[in-house]
Design a protein around this nucleic acid. Structure first.
Length: 198
DNA sequence: GCGACAG
DNA sequence: ATCTTGTCGC
């Protein structure tokens, strides 16, 4: 039997260039979602829309939740896991957007961010694959992951139906030699391309 | 009062 | 998010 396809999805939202500060409801945006199979894009959707509210730390879902849900629902084929720039348990109410979106879509999710929201932890060694825990109190809620030497580590957040171990494994498997997982890069590129067309 | 603060 | 600037390395 052939090896099973491993379909990894990702979604991204970008705003008009030059927008600064927290923004507001009604900000024009472009949302993109992709599905990648062994490094190849096998599904892609892009949609224009408007922000539901301003950006407030801890309430990202109120700004972008409906837009992410809308674009991902249009995706075919359906991925096995979805990556997005958001947190899971690293949140004031242990309910970051990655958790919300996975629950709403009944789809396993993994958050990937540049920095933690509340959690703290020392950076891992400067070697590919090095990790260190990010904790809130005594609970590990996310993992620092050095995806490439000499670059800032990423924060990997377990979210809907994923755990600390699986989330790191999914991210490492989708790096394709870059610092950022390839599906997320593709989704960002698709959103920006749509923006450029307007 | 001041800085921090997923995107 | 998005912008700018500067630096390092291939």
């Amino acid at each position: 039997m052939p090896a099973a396809s491993y379909l990894v999805g990702a979604c991204w939202v970008c705003f008009r260039r030059g927008l600064s500060g927290p923004g507001a409801a009604g900000d024009p945006l472009w949302a993109a979602a992709v599905v990648v199979d062994a490094g190849r894009i096998v599904g892609q959707r892009v949609v224009g829309g408007y922000a539901s509210g301003p950006y407030v730390p801890g309430m990202l879902a109120l700004r972008l939740g409906p837009q992410f849900e809308d674009v991902v629902r249009r995706l075919t084929p359906w991925p096995e896991v979805l990556l997005l720039d958001a947190t899971g348990d690293d949140h004031p109410r242990r309910a970051g957007l990655a958790l919300h979106l996975g629950a709403a879509l009944d789809l396993p999710t993994v958050g990937v961010t540049h920095r933690p929201l509340l959690a703290t932890g020392v950076w891992p060694a400067d070697e590919a694959g090095a990790t260190s825990p990010l904790t809130i109190g005594t609970d590990q809620v996310a993992t620092w992951l050095r995806t490439r030497p000499g670059t800032r580590p990423l924060v990997v957040h377990p979210a809907w139906r994923t755990d600390l171990e699986v989330s790191v494994r999914v991210v490492e498997a989708s790096l394709a030699g870059r610092r950022t997982p390839e599906p997320l890069r593709s989704a960002r590129q698709a959103a920006r391309r749509a923006r450029a067309g307007q």
